[in-house]
Design a protein around this nucleic acid. Structure first.
Lengths: 207, 207
DNA sequence: ACCTGAACACCGTTCAAGT
DNA sequence: ACCTGAACACCGTTCAAGT
């Protein structure tokens, strides 16, 4: 039973499956070939090399993310909801984030939210350079936050970490602060809070 | 001329040099051994394995970063200056950022600025959980920003990128916005602007 | 047009053997 | 206590040879 002829799509599908199950580092050309039931070298004919295979994979996943629908009564609320939706999308594809970052394509992750943000920023009355900068500030914040957050999750224990630093030296008589900093951050809450703060300032007029 | 006995410090020094010159991916055990003039396996006796070698390297670089001195007349200004100083420090060690991120130790990069931020947030009148969250929001923003920024620098050309998306569809009649988003971001400016916006909101009372 | 195995130049790590 | 070479189990990639 010789296998059906290999196609580029089949290679990408199987590669995506491998990444989904075992992470990007498990995607070796040899394992992929084994999974496909072909010789390693056949893959090269269809996708060039590992580099462009990963490129194609990233491209495909980003394309599948789909548009973001803003929710809320005010431009600020809707801009916040876009940031939250962006974070949710990225977190739904944890390996994508890692792959995109490894390959220096972080800006790829900006695009899905950009149009939606432009609309809200316009709605809030900002134009031109100021509007563009507000959009970018929110994008950088959201994507950067997810990068930090994902990274923290990957590291099981942060060696000396914040924890030890704060339980001893009780932080200038602010025990509640010391206790909070000694515990891992509540990312969900921190993201909502920081995005709200950022958006609020950025969408104000004047300044 | 048999070489002098190998020491752990010598291994770390040479490894640091290799990373500084050619980046973390150039630090292979074999190249390191060649540089040191020893057998590959000798390194294992002194540092365990590649994993813990990188750990030690990160530890050492972070320790060398030194304290951050806040500048400015108001707590908000000083908090902003801490964020800027943190970014400057991290950017001065570009490979550190990559190594720390790769190894899931991103929080490591938080610590140098944390004490300084706590002081300013206290000064601004925040206490307890709110103060802690403000500190963390600023840290996440600063570190996340640097991650995104460094990543962008690593990628020579962003394939379809923002550029193409905006020069055609002229962005809801806002030509200046379209032009700005079509150009690469001015990171320096964007960082100053976003940190100011974030700090301003976070240090306000009430809300 | 598509697939193959052999071969090359790399990796990190282990381990028995040396001094 | 420290160093060594041989060996193992991996990598990505090239290339001549097959159909």
């Amino acid at each position: 039973m010789a296998r059906a002829p290999l196609t580029r799509d089949e290679v990408l599908d199987t590669a995506a499956g491998l990444v989904k199950q075992h992470g990007p580092e498990a995607l070796t050309m040899r394992k992929l070939a084994a999974e496909l039931g072909t010789a390693v070298t056949s893959i090269y004919w269809h996708v060039g090399n590992r580099e462009s295979l990963l490129d194609a994979l990233v491209e495909r996943t980003v394309a599948d993310l789909g548009a973001i629908r803003p929710r809320g009564g005010t431009p600020a609320e809707r801009a916040e909801s876009v940031a939250r939706a962006l974070r949710r999308q990225l977190r739904a594809h944890p390996h994508l984030v890692a792959m995109v970052h490894e390959r220096g394509l972080t800006e790829r992750m900006f695009l899905p939210a950009q149009r939606a943000l432009v609309r809200e920023v316009h709605e809030a009355g900002l134009r031109g350079v100021r509007a563009a900068e507000a959009v970018r500030a929110i994008q950088f914040h959201a994507v950067g936050f997810v990068l930090v957050e994902r990274n923290r999750e990957r590291a099981p224990v942060q060696r000396p970490g914040e924890e030890d630093l704060w339980d001893a030296a009780a932080a200038e008589d602010d025990a509640a602060l010391a206790r909070t900093l000694a515990r891992p951050a509540d990312a969900e809450r921190l993201f909502a809070l920081s995005v709200r703060a950022l958006v609020k300032s950025l969408l104000e007029h004047g300044s």
